[in-house]
């Protein structure tokens, strides 16, 4: 392990209880958690590698593969679901040619569904890199994607 590479972890106390925080810090920098990151976290928090992997794989937040430049989260919360989030997902999927859980070949977009973004009153919604877009219909969805593609 390159000691310098993970210097930013030093802001977090190296106790096992802070593992999730540490992993969040890693993911915030890299967008995902690699095998090497797991090894580094295990060393830093004095845990077995398999424990780190066990914790990490339990939580939906952690990604094991690099995401695209734009991380699209289609909300499938209850309100969004009854307002047709399955169709939104369909449309995004068709437009980008990737399924939920995938990243496109150019590493521009990655697509996933999330349980709830807490913007139920604007259902159906999706977020791109954390920015929420609400009251989606097909036209709006496609337009948002096209704008991001152009950027």
């Amino acid at each position: 392990m390159e000691q310098t590479e993970y210097d930013y972890l030093k802001k977090i106390a190296p106790e096992p209880g802070n593992l999730i925080k540490g992993l969040q810090a890693i993911q915030a920098r890299e967008g995902y958690v690699s095998d090497d990151d797991i090894r580094a976290a295990a060393t830093y928090f004095s845990l077995a590698e398999v424990e780190v992997e066990g914790v990490l794989s339990f939580y939906a937040q952690f990604k094991r593969n690099p995401p695209g430049k734009y991380r699209i989260c289609v909300c499938d919360g209850t309100a969004c679901h009854i307002k047709g989030s399955a169709l939104i997902l369909d449309w995004v999927s068709t437009e980008l040619g990737i399924k939920a859980g995938e990243t496109d070949a150019k590493k521009l977009f990655s697509l996933e569904t999330v349980a709830c973004l807490g913007c139920c009153s604007l259902a159906p919604v999706m977020s791109i890199n954390g920015k929420v877009f609400g009251n989606l219909d097909r036209k709006a969805t496609v337009k948002i994607l096209k704008e991001h593609r152009k950027k």
Binding site: A48, V50, E51, E53, G54, S57, F58
Partner: peptide, 9 residues
């Protein structure tokens, strides 16, 4: 030894 863990959920 800590060689095993549950994974996923």
């Amino acid at each position: 030894r800590n060689l095993l863990s549950q994974k996923q959920r």
